[in-house]
Design a protein around this nucleic acid. Structure first.
Length: 340
RNA sequence: GGAGGAUUGGGUGAGUGGUUGAAACCAACGGUUUACUAAACCGUCGGGCCCUAACCGGCCUCGUGAGUUCGAAUCUCACAUCCUCCGCCA
């Protein structure tokens, strides 16, 4: 969530950010609500100051009559404060709702666009593999080798459930171990986080309220993470770090849970858009400046590319357009493998 | 799931309704002294918000949220976390 001061001082920039990200939000309304909020709070605080001042007079008053009179006066002030606080409540509701919708300001280089079709290819690596024969997809190959079982997966879990078996399971272990070695060598601290988290962590990372339909919720009002970014960022929440500690780099490994609501008709086949999977995530906590965050984001992207390259997987890097990045995001690349 | 105890500033820890945002000690920081270090002594020392060019000033904050009261760290309720014991434990 952006600071209201920053929003007010850079209103035009934030408005342009919303336009670029195709987010509808009435920022002028936010300013109006914020003005009202500040005015009311000033009134309340002035009354409270009076209350505090007279309270100590009451404490030191020796004359019983004076004391009683002061208390009577303060009873009236108390009622006024309570009335103002009631007025403040709906104002704060609207203020918070609007604040949670304010988009983070995207980097200059983020292209304009309406959908992922407008994403821009930045660079490619390797040659797109071409076979002299008609190739099979991953589903066919894995089934043939007993690496996965979708039918029993669906029987046990339901839609898009899967069992990884034999070499399929071994391959997953191998990739995790390989990734662990790869990123540990680049000064990332390994982290295995909790996957059941409190709501506040999802607000903190912008997954709520935006992705509410995609998040699993427990009967205790806790949430299952869709990415270890959530507990990874929650790690230092409500804490203040010394500049000398930065950047903090985590390589978090966790199961991820996603409802994939509304995506049932897309990409129907195979191990994509599943409800449950495992993921290694790079997390870097750096100084809160645009330059620093973009710099470390480039490093993360570079690490991912080199990871792909070390496996010899041809790929291209795509810069996502405004409409295809999250409300909280500044810049985003997709590194897409070229599969035959 | 049940019973009991706890939660105060960077740390230890006092404080059970009224100049307590909070004693004391430690740590930290600045200074005096010192050839240097140590010691000693003096001073500073939580955070957020509002106002201000700044100073000054104001509000909030003693796990969180409500409540009682003219006034709450202190009383009431709910919740969270930690500790001890019992139960459960694929």
């Amino acid at each position: 969530m952006l600071d209201i001061k920053f929003i007010r001082e850079n209103l035009d920039v934030v408005k342009m950010a919303a336009v670029k990200k195709k987010i509808t939000i009435d920022l002028d309304r936010l300013v109006v609500v914020d003005d009202a909020r500040k005015a009311l709070m000033t009134t309340i605080e002035t009354r409270k100051a009076e209350q505090n001042r007279v309270s100590s007079d009451i404490a030191s008053a020796t004359d019983a009559a004076v004391r009683t009179q002061l208390i009577t006066e303060m009873q009236a002030v108390k009622i006024e404060i309570q009335a103002d606080e009631e007025k403040l409540k709906p104002l704060m509701e609207e203020w918070k709702t609007l604040m949670l919708q304010v988009p983070n300001v995207p980097d200059m280089t983020v292209p304009d666009g309406d959908s992922d079709a407008d994403n821009v290819e930045i660079r490619t690596w390797g040659e797109q593999t071409k076979f002299a024969f008609e190739s099979k997809d991953h589903v066919e190959i894995m089934l043939k080798h007993g690496m996965v079982d979708f039918e029993r997966g669906a029987k046990v879990h339901g839609f898009r459930g899967y069992y990884m078996l034999g070499d399929g399971a071994r391959l997953m272990w191998a990739i995790w171990n390989y990734a662990n070695d790869f990123f540990s060598a680049r000064d990332f601290v390994q982290m295995i986080p909790p996957t059941i988290v409190r709501k506040s962590n999802l607000y903190g990372t912008g997954h709520l309220p935006n992705d509410a339909d995609d998040v699993y919720r427990t009967q205790d009002e806790d949430y299952l993470i869709g990415t270890s970014e959530v507990p990874g960022m929650g790690f230092y929440s409500d804490e203040i770090l010394e500049q000398s500690q930065l950047p903090v780099k985590f390589m978090a490994f966790s199961p991820c849970f996603r409802r994939e609501a509304g995506s049932h008709s897309k990409d129907v086949k195979g191990l994509i858009r599943v409800h449950e999977f495992y993921k290694v995530e790079q997390i870097i906590i750096c100084e809160a400046s645009h330059e620093e965050s973009v710099k470390w984001h480039e490093e993360i992207t570079n690490n991912s590319e080199e990871f792909m390259q070390s496996l010899g997987i041809p790929h291209h890097v795509v810069l996502n357009c405004g409409a295809d990045i999250g409300q909280g995001q500044v810049k985003k690349y997709d590194i897409e493998a070229w599969v035959p």
